[in-house]
Design a protein around this nucleic acid. Structure first.
Lengths: 147, 147
DNA sequence: ATTGCAAATGCAAATTATTCGCATTTGCAA
DNA sequence: TTGCAAATGCGAATAATTTGCATTTGCAAT
């Protein structure tokens, strides 16, 4: 694993296949959790690259625009990014340790239809995030989170 | 309308009843859409007040902590705030004009239960946002948003 | 292969939302 | 009425993201 090329994907989407884009897309593809820009930045530094932060932002913007990557503003401050394999993702985030897990199942496709009728909006997408305590933090908290 | 007091609410929640809090809470209560900090700021300026932005941020933090107000980071940049009447709210936002509408119905209470079993998280809350074109913008776009 | 140019990158400075430090004011309990 | 903790105002500080511009680079056409 590691060294495959995404050149065709880029070509297909009408964008140039640059080294930086290969690296960013590769990192996102290999990750099993959504990544922040900062995580991508340090992740690629370790792989001995000196890539500009703004370049990462711009690359991600392009990926999102092309529908290759999903951007989610889950927490108040930083956005996280992940590849759109097949279909969008929802998330569950631990409010104690910050861990973010992606969920594949989407329980509201049907509701979306009903909502379109009700509101007369043309709905193009949605985001759903759950907050709570992950199994590990749940144990730690045991017996003290009443109020 | 306009000039009722929320002093009891504040007392009940163990926070002082200040003029600034009355104003912010009043504005949120009277609004039928979620407001940004900036909107609150200018909204209260017009009512001839010189309130500090940081005061508004702090007041809202307290309201959120006390469960009086719901904060939602819907768009990439600014957060919006709204009073928690009875139960939380979801949103639908127009990606053309930026209009945000609050939805009362929550279609995922049941799913949340299932998800708790599946993930072993203890889920405490969730956020759901829909994106699309509002009726007005839908008309304007008529016939041109295919690709 | 070589070349030319638009697209992409790097860097630093700018922007924007939000937070923080600290001196001053103010609600409210005694 | 008084005292003091809580709240406010102001400006400065942060932190994430964006932008301007000069330089580099992918790639299509030669």
């Amino acid at each position: 694993m590691e060294s495959k090329s995404y050149t065709e994907i880029f070509k297909k989407n009408g964008i140039k296949a640059t080294k930086q884009r290969e690296l960013v897309f590769g990192l996102l593809t290999d990750s099993d959790v959504p990544l922040t820009v900062e995580e991508i930045y340090v992740g690629l530094m370790e792989k001995e690259k000196n890539m500009s932060l703004s370049t990462i932002y711009r690359i991600l913007d392009v990926f999102v625009e092309k529908g290759l990557v999903q951007k989610s503003n889950i927490t108040d401050n930083k956005a996280v990014y992940e590849v759109v394999g097949m279909g969008h993702k929802h998330h569950i985030i631990c409010i104690s340790c910050g861990k973010i897990i992606a969920l594949d199942h989407c329980p509201i496709k049907e509701y979306e239809k009903a909502l379109e009728k009700e509101t007369e909006f043309e709905i193009t997408s949605h985001k759903l995030v759950f907050f709570g305590y992950c199994p590990e933090c749940k144990k730690k908290n045991e017996g003290d989170h009443g109020k």
